[in-house]
Write a protein that binds this DNA or RNA. Structure first.
Lengths: 209, 209, 209, 209
DNA sequence: GATGAATGAGTCTTCATTCAT
DNA sequence: GATGAATGAAGACTCATTCAT
């Protein structure tokens, strides 16, 4: 049944089109930003023409929004993972920050998502809002949970940063921005940064009698 | 002497035009970004027409670059101030971070400058480069100077963050990005953040026997 | 088969568009010159809009150059024809000049091409250069060939104009310029001019013992 | 009386301004053509500003027309000279053509005037008309006068070119156009051309029994 | 489903012209 | 007389979007 197989491949192709487009859109939007990206460039990248894009997505705006949704894998897994962490609370914090680094610094999608939120936020306020709900809020909550449990267990002192966990964890953002700006020109030693960061804040949080 | 006064007004006006334009450009570029800002909007903001802008600035690109230069007040003053700090090294670090907050978080120009570096960096690589030279490098150097002196004085332990000061100080960037994104919708308590931040890292750096 | 016919029309249309545009461009450029011609006027002339022109031609400059190429039918045929002339050398010169008149005076494209070379030459030096290679050089060579053969055959005396054929044939240019300037207002009797021209120079070249 | 002298110089200056402007306009229009020449460039050339030009000339169009008038020295002198020629009619024709060469080929103003008539003629029809009246008509009349006198004197045969003198004299235009187009790239030997031209047509016109 | 020719609104940029000083 | 800041009409060019095939 070669005909059927052929048809199956074609159908498969079609079923993949939207994804293909979203991924091509991601690449182009990353390269040039929303305004400067042309629908035609996205089309070319997957070997189709403008019309095809418009068959699947109403407008450029819509395509951008869908693309954002497509690369957004909420932090819910971080929260979930955070709950499953074991060991001392210092170890848990270390692993939690590790998860953060793996997402924000190492995972290209998340990194660029953050960039989009910054660069196109004024054009797409819903994107900013969603990002807040799906990333920031769960992330803060998870961090606070661990920290408070650490305090309760007597492992951490009741520092003001317990209630404002980004004040402790936030250096991650510095590295992230550095990477965004100078990744190619001034490469950073991510591991060393991570170790230095964790070292300072754990020493800063640990309870001493 | 109405004639003289009138002349003075004219000359005065002329002398101020470039500044006026640069400031209007700043506001518009902040609002809409480089691409989406129209020269005409900038003109309207100060009650003139397109042509006037072009009388003072060759192209939109040039205007943007000059605007960036106009709002860029290098960190050199931070470095200078950093050298004049006195007191214990903990106090000095506290004051140094305070300077940072005052610039990056509180000063609108610096905050938006950072945003421009992020959002328009790919279109204006020179801007990114200049920013690196004039902001990042001096900032890191100043931070390291204080930290190393603190270690030499026996006040700080020789933590890995001494050599990578952004790992300690970087939470500032988190707040900065938060402000950039949610300043209006989700206001932050900057002072509390600052205190929590300083508290953690000073406790993390201090030498204990 | 209306569908097929329709398809054919479309494809046909598309295939003709570039030519259609080039011809409309020719008319407009002839009427107003390069600078004063608006792309939109060219478009209107064939009932399309600006965008369509830009779909086929990158820039106005490019369109002009292609238009020039499109109306340029090199003199190579004149050279070829010149070689096939027969009869006395006087007859051959007569026929050669006739070819010239047919091209430069009667053929609108060639006439306007020359005008473009004069009027837009400083903006399009390549056009001038190409014109020199494709028109002037072959033309002079062909003229000299006949004249020298005429001398060799003893039919023409060895006048200085044998080596500088434009000195004999050049009156054509006078008529051409007259036509360019006053064609409508002060019409010329081309045939009479031609006869007078040929009469003078043949009488001037003929060898008499 | 230094004050008076100064004033005199200034007044002199002012009196010369229009001429100065017209000459600067000539240079700029020659270089760039009517449309592409900017009033400001003309002003700069004589060290004044736009406003000054407009003080003396209503519009750019007007300035161009006046400039044309300024460089137009009618052929009336040629006609006058033509009447004063003496010697054989062959010698007179030779001298008449010499006058033509001196004007059309050697005199920059006349050469560029012809170019303007060709390039800007459609924008300035009055210029073309005036040129016809002041240059072409007297030139043809003068030529015909000599030729007819030569026939009457039995020196020239009654060739058709007697009534259509441009058919005999017109090679001048060929050289003129060559110079306009290739003056710099492919220099011509004007004297040789002149001799070849005169040689052919005199031999072509001379009466032989 | 896919194509790509066609549209037209939108923007930068230029420059003749004006006019207060 | 001269200046030059300001105006605004005009035109090249781009690109999201449409739609007949």
């Amino acid at each position: 049944m070669p005909a059927k197989k052929q048809l199956g491949q074609r159908a498969q192709r079609k079923a993949q089109r939207p994804q293909e487009i979203l991924e091509a859109a991601f690449e182009e939007f990353v390269e040039s930003g929303y305004v400067a990206t042309r629908i035609e460039d996205i089309a070319k990248r997957i070997g189709v023409t403008k019309g095809t894009i418009y068959f699947y997505f109403e407008t450029k705006e819509r395509l951008f929004e869908e693309m954002i949704r497509h690369i957004s894998v909420p932090f819910s897994d971080i929260s979930a993972n955070a709950k499953n962490l074991s060991g001392t609370y210092s170890e848990r914090i270390r692993m939690f920050i590790r998860l953060l680094y793996d997402r924000i610094i190492m995972d290209r999608n998340t990194r660029e998502l953050l960039r989009f939120v910054i660069t196109e936020g004024s054009r797409f306020p819903q994107v900013v809002d969603r990002h807040h709900e799906e990333f920031i809020v769960p992330f803060k909550a998870a961090a606070r949970d661990i920290l408070e449990a650490g305090v309760a267990a007597g492992e951490f002192r009741n520092a003001p940063a317990i209630k404002i966990p980004d004040a402790a964890i936030g250096a991650t953002m510095m590295l992230c921005v550095w990477q965004m700006l100078f990744a190619d020109r001034k490469p950073q030693d991510v591991e060393a940064f991570f170790e230095a960061h964790v070292d300072v804040i754990l020493n800063g949080l640990i309870a001493r009698d």
